[in-house]
């Protein structure tokens, strides 16, 4: 009797977190089927999958970065600034050093240095934001609002606002490479990032620390967690991921510019919330975020196939979906609460 009861409540305890994933999955399938039925000849074709796989990695990777910071109870509004700044540094380096007409083999070392340079800029940007938040106690939303302005400002300043083009051909050739003539390298990078971050969150000590600090930073201090270092590392990861996204953007556009991807910030926050990341910190999974990315990509790709529907309806739908999800979650949690109250009287 007791054992079945325990097993039952274990299952219930787990499923209490799962409904969100389940809901997202239902939504994902629904959107997919809807689009396939409405546009059978265009949606879900090989060409369409290929173009979708080219589109979402850049903002998807940034969304994962923002999600991590939100899990620790903060937010990183500086991801796009970081991405552009690090891409611009790499672009400036490449444009300034690679000799004209150099053979591909000669270019490779330059590319490696450029990528490392860009990743380290991302790390430094993230560390800066993390320091403002953990050392100087500036609320994350304001600190990163500031770093976004600062990084974008530096990016504009060092380029005078002009796009940096004339990258070595090899860079965009590698950046737009496709495996089996179908899977773009950017998708592979996204996949690696998502799996890696997912494992970090669910299977490592550091992941648990992130969730716990996000739940209650005071209690985590009393439990011996080093909040400063956890925050710093989280924002450094977010910065690093942003610079990866920046490198992908640079390959796609074959140039770098201070104002690329400006609307991505809000989109990424939206993805994180839709994916079940609690804006107050402590909860959410990469699985949920990935599904939210896919849902929104299906929606926007699908809508692109309607000639009479403007691209901007994507914004309407994103906003609408976000609000509907919020309302729906709220109604559900009210029901759960009532149930919990009744249970706690037992």
């Amino acid at each position: 009797m007791t054992t079945t009861k325990t097993a039952d409540s274990v299952r219930r305890g787990r499923s209490a977190r799962d409904p969100n994933l389940l809901r997202l999955l239902v939504m994902l399938v629904f959107v997919f089927v809807l689009m396939t039925v409405l546009r059978p000849n265009q949606f879900a074709t090989m060409a369409d999958f290929n173009s979708m796989m080219r589109q979402f990695p850049e903002y998807g990777i940034m969304a994962i970065g923002i999600s991590l910071t939100m899990i620790t109870g903060g937010i990183d509004l500086g991801v796009v600034g970081t991405a552009n700044l690090s891409a611009i540094v790499a672009a400036k380096f490449l444009i300034g050093t690679v000799p004209r007409g150099a053979a591909p083999a000669q270019v490779v070392p330059y590319l490696i240095i450029a990528v490392l340079l860009s990743l380290s800029v991302g790390l430094v940007c993230g560390a800066f934001a993390g320091m403002l938040i953990s050392r100087f106690n500036i609320p994350a939303i304001l600190a990163t609002l500031g770093t976004q302005q600062l990084f974008t400002g530096i990016a504009i300043g060092i380029t005078s606002g002009r796009p940096q083009s004339g990258l070595p051909l090899l860079y965009s050739r590698i950046g737009n490479m496709e495996f089996f003539r179908f899977v773009p390298i950017s998708f592979v990078i996204f996949f690696v990032v998502a799996v890696g971050v997912g494992i970090m969150l669910s299977r490592t000590r550091f992941g648990t620390y992130m969730y716990m600090m996000g739940t209650n930073p005071r209690a985590s201090r009393y439990a011996g967690l080093n909040n400063t270092s956890i925050t710093l590392r989280t924002y450094m990861i977010s910065g690093l991921l942003s610079s990866v996204a920046g490198l992908i953007m640079m390959a796609r556009a074959n140039s770098a510019k201070a104002d690329y991807g400006a609307p991505y910030t809000l989109q990424c926050v939206l993805i994180a919330v839709l994916g079940g990341i609690n804006p107050n910190g402590g909860f959410g999974t990469i699985g949920g975020v990935t599904m939210a990315i896919l849902i929104l990509q299906f929606l926007s790709s699908g809508l692109n196939m309607f000639n009479n529907i403007s691209n901007f309806y994507r914004d309407v739908i994103w906003g609408g979906v976000l609000i509907l999800v919020l309302v729906f979650n709220k109604l559900l949690s009210w029901r759960e609460e009532r149930r919990a109250v009744r249970k706690s009287m037992n």
Binding site: I141, L266, V269, L270, V273, P279, N280, I309, S310, N311, F312, Y313, R314, D315, V316, I317, W318, G319, G320, L322, I323, L326, V327, K330
Partner: peptide, 24 residues
Amino acid sequence: FLRLPTLVVTLGTSSLYTGLMFGA
């Protein structure tokens, strides 16, 4: 009335309104 978090709600309506403006 629904007590939803303000930042997320206004992010959503912001996206909705700009989308309507440029779309509709």
